[in-house]
Design a binder for these strands. Structure first.
Lengths: 327, 327
DNA sequence: GTGAAAGCGCTAACAC
DNA sequence: GTGTTAGCGCTTTCAC
């Protein structure tokens, strides 16, 4: 491995001068600079991030915590984070937590070790206490999912309102029996979307039947399919379904077809997120569009502001109802 | 930040002893050990990866290079890599290259800096010269896409044979006019799958018409849709299509429906990869299944073997034709 | 069994 | 403008 010493030797200068050239700090004579740069090129020198970090406590690395890489919702957010971070000289360390506390600890330690400078967390099941503790010393932003009790700034949408609008859309189409396919209600967004659903139902004087409320165990297509199997066995079947994720909606769509029913004629269906595949489903999915890329971009900007000592405050972005063929 | 010195002070020992306890190296007196461990817990000490790496040139970090995080094909491979790596005490630094040479350089430097110990590359458009040069000094594995000219070990499938089987499947169903939706043929897999397509056609005495060969500019649903727009304008329309990625096939499916045609009655369609969406499409997609998770697992094992000085050799895994409703 | 000290590659304060 | 040097947090010889 070629070090700063090798470069200094070849250029006939001190390591300090090489360092100065690398970081173009103090004024270095044009001639010396050229000589050093030539040496750098000749040796194909790349400064050790390790040595530099150890000295400066800066790593230009951001930790991004996601529960699973397999959900297109997250990948779109990550695109936003990554573009923004890279433009400002930062890189991303993508950490799939799998909602596993042990993995979380590993990643948290990277932060405490100064290997990373801050965290953008999208993990709903993250250890909140630890995260709050960490947030006292390090820049942390929550993206999408957040903790109402915590002072950690977040970027999100108004899930309750969005859910309210989704269900209202179904009601306006004439539906009275509307089921909800929800996630695990340990998650804030799941509770919020349920609230939105209930509000819309109540406000229109519609009954909410316990049996129309389905909580999926995992964020997978299969969960949407299973939800339909359950709901279609009911005596009093729903005529419309609000799924809190496109993933569930797509699974549901598949299963409805398999049962020989039609969307939206027999059952209307609305999803949430507007993942790219939602437009490829047939019929294409009516859904609530989240500004995923934008959420990523803003999270990244917020954390880099924090890194620079700028005060940041939480942001709630706009969602949008996208009417397509499934309603 | 609490350092090894703080622990040493509190425990009333030297930093060397703390280090020994941390790495349970030399024999440390049971009593001293307990004392040190108590201090570690009390201070909530986590050793600095930076300091350690600088000293040992080990980071327990693996670089994973992918062109884009948005493709479910890659995410499934990453799951395999991650599970395997974590089980062996390694972590993943996921690097989205966007096929951008500048980003690649950043990530390559992480390796040269000893911030990462090895690379698993899935990037087909990676700078091959640089990668080969790097491979002389560092453990590198190519996953899925590889370079025939290079000595770098790889894990992949037999794309040519798989394509041959896919097309043969269509021919056996009675199709004579078969189109190919291919990727950019700069990529090896694209050339291989084209070869497989041509072999199958020739062997069955079928004509290959230039106009049935479509090369998509990007790996997006839209590319599959555009392919259909083009193919359906032909005078001599194909009756079946082999798409080298499920992404193209799903886009194609959508566009075929939009044009009021039916799959498989009017046009049969076969994809490649068996991404999770492929089963949610309607009709569900016939496709070539790649053992993505397995490819990831094996890549990770290979690179960790290399890290331990074990010799590794390239592996070609089995694919499988999965017949579903689109053919 | 434990401590002292060198040194990994780098930056920055201080000297000249 | 440039060089000398201390020291970031850690591991590992070498003494004792």
């Amino acid at each position: 491995m070629v070090t700063i010493h090798d470069v200094a030797k070849l250029a006939g200068v001190s390591v300090a001068t090489v360092s100065r050239v690398m970081n173009d700090h103090a004024r270095v004579a044009e001639k010396t600079k050229t000589r050093v740069e030539r040496a750098i090129n000749e040796l194909n020198y790349a400064p050790s991030v390790l040595g530099r970090n150890l000295r400066t406590s800066k790593s230009s690395l951001l930790l991004v915590l996601i529960p699973s890489i397999s959900n297109p919702f997250y990948t779109e957010i990550i695109n936003g984070i990554e573009d923004t971070a890279i433009a400002r000289g930062y890189n991303i360390l993508l950490c799939e937590t799998d909602s596993n506390p042990q993995r979380e600890t590993i990643y948290f330690n990277l932060l405490r070790n100064r290997l990373a400078e801050g965290i953008i967390s999208m993990d709903p099941s993250v250890n909140k206490n630890k995260l709050n503790e960490l947030a006292e010393s390090y820049p942390i932003i929550q993206c999408s999912e957040y903790d109402t009790e915590s002072p950690i700034p977040y970027v999100t949408i108004d899930s309750e309102k969005a859910a309210y609008e989704a269900v209202t859309h179904l009601i306006e189409l004439g539906h009275r029996k509307i089921a909800l396919i929800n996630s695990d209600e340990r998650f804030l967004y799941a509770r919020q979307r349920r609230n939105g659903y209930e509000q819309a139902m109540k406000q229109h004087g519609l009954a909410i039947r316990e049996e129309w409320l389905y909580n999926a165990p995992q964020l997978k297509f299969a969960a949407g399919q299973e939800a339909i199997s359950t709901l279609m066995q009911l005596e009093d079947k729903p005529t419309a379904i609000f799924a809190v994720s496109d993933i569930y909606a797509i699974g549901a769509l598949k299963e409805i077809h398999r049962k020989g029913k039609k969307v939206p004629e027999d059952i209307a269906l609305i999803g949430f997120d507007k993942i790219s595949f939602s437009d490829m489903a047939c019929p294409s999915l009516t859904t609530i569009s989240q500004p995923m890329y934008e959420m990523g971009r803003i999270s990244a900007e917020m954390i880099m502001d924090k890194l620079n000592g700028v005060n940041v405050s939480s942001k709630v972005l706009e969602h949008r109802l996208v009417c397509r063929e499934s309603t």
